[in-house]
């Protein structure tokens, strides 16, 4: 894994599809590309079969743009809608069995550390709420308790979208869905609380209608997972099909849900703050000068 893996064997470039040539010549590999530059460079994500206007698609698109070193990143996913897009990106994607993703990612990130030592190779899990909080719950929690150093991102559409509308542990109480006709009887699971109890070094909630914020949380989560410990992002990524949201209202829904029950939250351990400040130049996490402390 290095920048070379995206390049062509000499002489073969002219036989490659245009999208691939654009990727090599104008893609983000080896550069510091940002969300504000979209529309001017070739993105890693390609065409894919996720539904028109799906907020999960938008989130995945932004997340992939935000990876600090895309050429040194491997994504891990599982059954569910998200993998339909994540697998169509020019970075290696490992498809775990349904619910296995955090187990697969544990082995992968350990193996990469053995093979590459301190050279950062980032492992990022992206999976649905069903795959993560229900079927893969034990593997998710255990990877956190074991302090496995990789990033876990929940694509929380609050439903089993890919299989037609069953309730998940992350569905809100009372919600009626196609396959939950009486409404869900239990509260939404507190995965954020559990992530903190289990020892995640960084925990954040985010919605995709704030692209710069998505970029910021992804970067922090990936950088902290390199050396400090497990990181968890829970993203509200509505399913416009199962929740019957007209596609031109998906961003309005993101806004409403953010204001209502998915406010931006961010938690970092002191070690994570110090790590970001000293290794990656995050000035806001530098220790406050003593004078400023006494003033307050």
């Amino acid at each position: 894994m290095s920048l070379d893996y995206v390049k062509f064997t000499p002489g073969f470039g002219k036989f490659m599809p245009k999208e691939y040539r654009d990727m090599v010549e104008a893609g983000p590999f080896g550069k510091k590309t940002t969300v504000s530059q979209v529309g001017t460079f070739k993105e890693i994500l390609e065409e894919h079969p996720m539904c028109a206007g799906c907020a999960m698609t938008l989130f995945i698109r932004l997340a992939i743009i935000a990876f600090p070193n895309p050429e040194d990143t491997i994504t891990v996913g599982t059954a569910g809608c998200g993998r339909l897009a994540i697998s169509q990106a020019a970075i290696p994607f490992v498809y775990g069995n349904y619910g296995d993703q955090n187990g697969v990612a544990s082995g992968l990130s350990r193996g990469l550390r053995l093979r590459f030592g301190d050279r950062p190779k980032d492992v990022v899990v992206m999976a649905g709420d069903g795959g993560m909080a229900d079927i893969g719950f034990a593997q998710t929690l255990h990877s956190w308790f074991r302090k496995e150093k990789f990033t876990t991102i929940m694509l929380d559409n609050e439903v089993y979208g890919n299989t037609g509308g069953q309730e998940s542990g992350m569905t809100n109480k009372g919600q009626v869905l196609k396959m939950a006709p009486l409404g869900k009887k239990f509260e939404k699971m507190d995965m954020l609380g559990m992530a903190k109890v289990a020892g995640c070094a960084y925990v954040a909630t985010v919605v995709p209608n704030n692209p710069r914020r998505v970029e910021s949380v992804i970067k922090k989560a990936v950088l902290i997972a390199r050396e400090v410990g497990p990181t968890y992002i829970q993203a509200y990524t509505s399913c416009n099909i199962e929740y019957a949201i007209p596609t031109d209202q998906v961003l309005q829904d993101c806004k409403d849900v953010e204001n209502d029950r998915y406010k931006f939250t961010e938690y970092l351990t002191d070690e994570a703050k110090e790590h970001l400040a000293t290794l990656y130049g995050y000035k806001e996490y530098l220790p406050k000068p003593a004078a400023a402390l006494t003033k307050g």
Binding site: S36, G39, L45, E47, M50, A52, G53, T57, L58, P211
Partner: peptide, 16 residues
């Protein structure tokens, strides 16, 4: 303003 480009769910669709 380049706003729409950041919100289109599809990659490389609204270009600049």
């Amino acid at each position: 303003c380049k706003l729409c480009t950041q919100y289109c769910p599809e990659a490389n669709t609204i270009q600049y």
